[in-house]
């Protein structure tokens, strides 16, 4: 995910922020704020085209025969349509015994991303609950420090963490090492976002549970978690995309081997050898972005909600 850090904004706009409600209820009431209608339409179409064409071009390229990719551009398919699945066959299946095809990396990406999404979400929910609903001295300072940790460049943390992994835990170069690294690097943002949601839970509900004699563990499990499902979903998507799309953490903690490394790393290697891989790169790139795109289009509503919650409410 590109936007690893989301910061709080000013209060006051949140009530109108849930897009869907607005589209349904507010459409008729609102006034035209468009500047000049025709020019605006043209500009919008141009922007939409510029934003789509690069991806579309790559998508078309991925189905073109090798010689076509090397000798002319993807727009020639409109004159001379020729398509093949060979590129996908090659990147997914062709392989020697110890060398790699993308399918192995694809499996790695999943094996890394699923736990690396679950772990920080759960740990962050617990911490966020404590920061939001257990009053203690220094809670504010601690919360703000955690928020500020987002700015530590990951590069700074690589070597010390790797030392811990190799000398104390003996897990360096394994998938669990990548889980732990992603969990740590994801925590500041996820705690912040979860805190935004959990602190919004009406105090009456929590109080009522307390009056009934429930302790914090019970409240957390029976009240807070069920109420936070939408938040868990939207923040989970965020974290999943972030992990799936990450290159740096994987590069260092996976050891870069076929057994552990995710798709992004293999893709980066292939880009580094552009001339050799030119004909398979579009297909390879699409294999790597297909999962995020599916997640994105299927769960866009949650995704947007997570984004809005993170950025507008402190």
């Amino acid at each position: 995910m590109s936007t690893a850090s989301v910061v709080p904004g000013t209060p006051g706009v949140e009530e109108a922020l849930v897009e869907d409600q607005n589209l349904r209820g507010g459409k008729a009431r609102r006034v035209k704020t468009r500047l000049t209608s025709r020019a605006a339409t043209v500009a919008a179409i141009v922007i939409a085209a510029v934003w789509t064409i690069p991806t579309l071009g790559l998508f078309i390229s991925s189905f073109r025969p090798e010689t076509d990719i090397r000798t002319n551009g993807w727009w020639n398919v409109f004159v001379n349509p020729q398509f093949t699945l060979d590129n996908y066959g090659e990147v997914l299946f062709a392989s020697g015994a110890s060398s790699a095809n993308l399918l192995s990396y694809f499996i790695n990406s999943f094996a890394i991303a699923i736990p690396a999404t679950v772990f920080p979400i759960v740990l962050a929910s617990m911490a966020a609950y404590a920061f939001a609903w257990i009053r203690f001295k220094g809670s504010d300072v601690m919360f703000i420090v955690i928020f500020a940790l987002q700015i530590v460049p990951l590069q700074m943390a690589l070597i010390p963490l790797l030392q811990i992994f190799s000398q104390w835990l003996h897990i360096s170069g394994t998938i669990p090492a990548v889980w732990v690294a992603h969990t740590i690097f994801g925590l500041p943002l996820v705690i912040f976002l979860m805190h935004n949601f959990i602190s919004e839970i009406p105090g009456d509900i929590i109080e009522a549970a307390r009056v009934d004699g429930a302790n914090h563990a019970q409240i957390f499990l029976r009240v807070v978690l069920p109420l936070s499902v939408p938040a868990l979903a939207s923040i989970g998507i965020f974290q999943f995309l972030w992990v799936w799309n990450d290159l740096l953490v994987a590069l260092v903690f996976s050891g870069g081997t076929v057994d552990v490394a995710p798709l992004t790393q293999r893709l980066a290697e292939m880009v580094g050898n552009f001339g050799r891989n030119q004909e398979v790169l579009p297909a390879a790139a699409f294999v790597s972005i297909i999962v995020p795109l599916i997640v994105f289009f299927a769960l866009q509503r949650f995704f947007v909600r997570g984004l809005l919650a993170g950025s507008t409410k402190g």
Partner: peptide
Amino acid sequence: NYVGTQEAETQINVRAEAGD
């Protein structure tokens, strides 16, 4: 066990420094 990666020249600095 042969472990090959194109990043090895860079990664060896990290691995050696980290005691691994």
